[in-house]
Design a binder for these strands. Structure first.
Lengths: 105, 105
DNA sequence: CATATAATTCAACACATGTTGAAATACTCG
DNA sequence: CGAGTATTTCAACATGTGTTGAATTATATG
């Protein structure tokens, strides 16, 4: 998921989906990019499970994309752990002049 | 920063730094990768501002890497905003059969 | 001064991937 | 059935980038 969001255009697409935008055409229009390119990025986001797609019941040509809330919560929790500043503990180097003798390899 | 952390090996390096590991040699050894590769990834992390480097005052050959706490807090805040589930608002498609007539392009 | 060490830098390669434009798919509408 | 539409799929390309191994830098040590 991080890898998917690491691509600038894809991050914008994801952010627009968070704001409630749903169809390929609006994303392509607002970003000034081709529908095929947006389709590609939406596919990547869907493949990693960040978003879902749903066809219109009346006219299946339209596909509505939306954020996968479960994946969102999971990623949010993992990011909070990853970036938790309290995890950083004071620690002497295991090598170099300041290494504790017993740990030295 | 997201792009930098999107690379699996680099994410591991970053995570080890969060756990207090500091020198190239220990990271390379624990990950079973060459020092030159670790050096490359550390360089990328440093370039985007996620980590800092400091030479040992006694023996400058040793370089100690550490997390940039300011960047950590900034990224944490931005990620919390990006992944904030409460941002997702109900919204009708701007195009397609369900679009509101006035918004239709 | 020669050797060993920690880390970086460099050239080179293989592979992944973002982007483009055309074609295909599936559907609505007249 | 033909024209138009929303989207995807496909082939092709250019570029970015992770990885490797050798060379380089800078320092300590004897």
């Amino acid at each position: 998921m991080l890898k998917a969001l690491g691509e600038p255009t894809r991050l914008s697409v994801f952010d627009m989906l968070m704001e409630g935008v749903q169809c390929n055409c609006e994303i392509a229009q607002r970003l000034g990019l081709s529908p095929s390119l947006i389709s590609h990025h939406l596919g990547v986001l869907r493949q990693v499970g960040l978003i879902q797609s749903e066809h219109d019941s009346d006219d299946p040509r339209w596909i509505y994309y939306s954020i996968d809330r479960q994946a969102l919560v999971q990623l949010d929790q993992e990011m909070r752990h990853l970036l938790d500043a309290s995890r950083i503990q004071p620690r002497l180097p295991s090598c170099g002049p300041r290494a504790t003798a017993t740990v030295r390899g």
